[in-house]
Design a protein around this nucleic acid. Sequence first.
DNA 1: GTCTATACCCTGATAGAC
DNA 2: GTCTATCAGGGTATAGAC
Lengths: 202, 202
Amino acid sequence: MQKTTKEKILDAALNLFAQKGYKGASVRMIAREVGIRESALYNHFKNKEDILDTIVSTLSSSSLSLISSSSSIEQSALKGKKFLREFATSFKLLSYDDKSEKFFRFMMIELMQNKKIRDIFLNYFLKEHLKILSKAFFIMMQEGIILSSDPMLMAREFLSPLFFYRMQATLLKLDNESSSNTSTLFEKHIDFFWDMISSSSP
Amino acid sequence: MQKTTKEKILDAALNLFAQKGYKGASVRMIAREVGIRESALYNHFKNKEDILDTIVSTLSSSSLSLISSSSSIEQSALKGKKFLREFATSFKLLSYDDKSEKFFRFMMIELMQNKKIRDIFLNYFLKEHLKILSKAFFIMMQEGIILSSDPMLMAREFLSPLFFYRMQATLLKLDNESSSNTSTLFEKHIDFFWDMISSSSP
DNA sequence: GTCTATACCCTGATAGAC
DNA sequence: GTCTATCAGGGTATAGAC
């Protein structure tokens, strides 16, 4: 349970990066939060960018998609609405994980400035999720559970509100405003979406 | 057509803010791009923040919602799908306006760091658009043009893909990748969404 | 309105004692 | 591994000559 200095540095850095972005968070501030001098920090990392790279390579996969590691899509897609609920839930849960949430904030700040982060977003986040969702929708269509359409289009239409609501929740949290309402947006989205695409409509 | 120095400063600042964010763009760089010394810049603006405030108050309304100024919603909502197409088009057109696009990029960078920008996003962008859309959907429901549901929910579900696709288009443009595909996403979204909510389904 | 000169702080990073 | 000391460079901002 003891944190090494290196871990403390990474934690402090993530904290500050999520608040002020890469440029806004200085090496001095990071060292100050850890409780050491700036120079001592260079015993653990080559330079500031080295800290960033370590954070990114550690968190980019785990903080952006829990989902891919789950059981085979072929099986779970057959569950229909339940699959969507599980997908959205694991998506929503990322907001409650401290490091994931901070990494998400950092990613949003850097998206338009940093090509590396942009690539991670487009590949780890977007591409990965769309692949899973479109595959699941394809199976559901084959089984006649949902209406026939373009699976990839449907995947985008399902994913984008999830992203939007997560972003909104993160923004409201920053101002300490009620994020309780945002939580129900996920559920309402699933209900609405499922009503629209499901074959039976009683 | 002659640009005053003040206008040149604002243009240069917006350029740099959109690329590097507020902190990342230095007064020196702004002055350099205009072709004057830093000190000369202080004849036109009190300080760096003054430049930002001028940009924000000039562009926040015009660059985020063209729509509110259009004709009465009661009338246009009756047009059904055509209304949605017009709404999405004016939304998409903002991406092609240089200043709007740059302001959008700047806004995305600052969203998680700057409360002022966050408020503008939530009020000018989100609230305003949702008000218009929910009102329009409400009217369409009353007229029996679309299925009955929660108008505000439907507004959110319609708006969030628009936002997501605009963001995606902006990201791809930054790496000079094909944003031609993203353009059709808007149209596909409208078709998909309308198919789902319209009362008649031939 | 623009210039030079300058003030002062913060930045990332290194050298060398302990 | 951490410290003190130090560095060059860049940051915002002001004073005063032209």
